[in-house]
Design a protein around this nucleic acid. Structure first.
Lengths: 235, 235
DNA sequence: ATTTTTTATTGTTTATTTAACAATTAAAAA
DNA sequence: TTTTTAATTGTTAAATAAACAATAAAAAAT
């Protein structure tokens, strides 16, 4: 089966940057490594690509292992291939980032992997080049979210406009005028207003909305702009 | 050295989608495969990642092999990892795309690799999943060029505004009003007007411009928009 | 029961940007 | 000298974005 003779074969890994939003801050899910090297240190969830699975399949498998989730937003980010990135053996790693509804995350899985959610700004140092991967993921999510409605993937089915705005402000580390934000969001035609309100966040209560999936898929590729002054933000 | 025991090791390749612009149409550089599998069929230029080089280094090496060029625009595109993409042996491939000044391309290298420039629209069928790679590269170049000034990488140091417009029209397969285009381009502050004209293209002649490199690097990350109605183009 | 407090919701005006559109100029060719 | 061809410059209307404040709903406090 090895017909390309004399060529180097190497390990191919997948690492997942898993984002979640708790209503306050953007978070990432990290695990405490259970074995050497770097045992006990914080790391992204990862694993090796198996012989009979594609890289995408490997990424989905690893995401499901840690979160219990399938069919969620998962996008290939970048492949990291420095010769020295793994001290044990030459390994290339394909990084993926996932956007999940943090409430659907199966908490009991945390125990198995010693997993923990960290606010993106206060995450611990990570092993290997995982820090670079997270940085790249942050840039990508901002870049993409500035023009495509991917951040809805972080919210539950029903959400309020103030929640959505908090999410955008959190991702872009900025503040947005709520009148203009609401106008832009509603103008997209992506939202369906529901009859009842979320009373948790305020006395008055805010109406729930859900995505119009028809329009969501139709407009996903289109450039939109919820973020004012996009070129003032260094993405 | 192989301490992650029982894991699959596989071949890691790099494939380059090389874009050039001849003043008329956007082109890609393809080679005729010299050995099996698929000997004699058209293919992207590629090669295996060696043990002591990073993936980026491999991409640069392969680009130089075919074009003689170094230090040109080269960006990682996507990693392709289907289990069946190479019929001989499991191989993952990291695709890169390059934007080069077609005039700097060293033509004699064409002979060594049986390389040929094809208009993007009239390129032949390609081996393996190289067709998918080219499609992904087309999408990416459009996406990125809609907001970042990468297309200048395809032009010679001195170029005219009509040439630049032809390039944009070619990449986006559209027509642009020349008055508005000229205004937008000049408004970026990216161009320096030179004293002499290009007399080849017209009787009157068009002034040469060159990039203001200072502003080019400063504004590279910023979102710009040379393309009217970006959401009407399906990127 | 009334007032206070807090956050959600709605709207208007101005500034900026984009789109649509035509006339003039330079230089070679006829 | 006239014709031809493509480059260059400018104006107006429409659309979009930014800046800004008042009102409404509902719980909590008095």
């Amino acid at each position: 089966m090895q017909k390309y003779s004399k060529q180097t074969r190497l390990l191919l890994a997948v690492d997942c940057i898993i984002f979640g939003f708790d209503g306050e801050t953007l978070k990432i899910l990290l695990i405490k490594r259970a074995f050497n090297p770097e045992k006990g240190n914080w790391s992204l969830m990862g694993g090796f690509v198996q012989f009979n699975e594609s890289i995408d399949q490997a990424a989905n498998r690893i995401l499901k292992q840690l979160t219990g989730l399938e069919g969620v937003y998962l996008e290939q980010l970048h492949t990291f291939g420095s010769t020295t990135r793994d001290p044990i053996e030459r390994t290339a790693s394909v990084a993926y980032f996932a956007l999940i509804d943090i409430h659907k995350y199966e908490t009991q899985l945390s125990n198995d992997y010693h997993a923990e959610w960290f606010p993106l700004k206060r995450a611990p140092k990570l092993v290997f080049d995982h820090q670079d991967m997270v940085e790249a993921a942050k840039r990508r999510i901002r870049y993409k979210a500035a023009m495509h409605p991917i951040l809805f993937e972080l919210l539950p089915t029903r959400f309020t406009i103030p929640q959505l705005q908090t999410l955008y402000e959190s991702v872009f580390n900025t503040t947005i005028d709520k009148r203009n934000f609401s106008k832009r969001v509603l103008a997209t035609g992506l939202l369906i207003k529901l009859a009842d309100k979320d009373k948790a966040g305020s006395k008055r209560g805010a109406y729930y909305y859900q995505l119009n999936m028809q329009n969501y898929y139709a407009k996903f590729q289109a450039f939109m702009n919820f973020i004012p002054n996009p070129d003032s933000l260094h993405l």
